[in-house]
Amino acid sequence: MGASTPITTDAIWNLLKQIPDPEVPAINIVELGVVRDVIFSQDGSGVEVVMTPTYSGCPAMKVMEDDVKEKLSAEGLEVKIKIIYKPAWTTDWMSDETKAKLKAYGISPPSKLTFEHLHPLSTVKNAEVICPFCDSKNTTLTSQFGSTACKALHYCNHCYQPFELFKCH
């Protein structure tokens, strides 16, 4: 894209949608919900990308920031990343389409947040976790913490497969 045709906000969003989540590459960082806003500088030479972390200590955050910088710098833009914490990231920002992509990738998508998820002394045992492979609801929680901060380990008692759940958050 030449300097004579200024890049649009939509084009920026489309570029950002080409960046996969480094830990769950089946979805991109826009679908994940970590990109909150795109703001052009007054003269249009720079762009500020507003992002929010999934978890406070998510190690993938730095990778995502670097990926955004690399992607947009390649368009000749000066890139600034702004991290915000409020509103806190939630899996409720994921669309049904995104959740379907997670399932196809073998990760059970998060259900809608409920009171039980937000209260520390309630058990979420009764929440239905569906096996991404055979759609059975006969599953057991193995551990609330999985290979990444955003996932929990489950086991399907129907098809005998261990699988990961993208935690409601």
Partner: peptide, 21 residues
């Protein structure tokens, strides 16, 4: 800033307490 950091941390501590309890 405190409110934002806390909103994030609150969700995490919910999991920690549930796990420990």
């Amino acid at each position: 800033t405190i409110a934002g950091l806390s909103e994030k941390a609150l969700k995490e501590m919910t999991y920690h307490v549930r796990h420990a309890s």
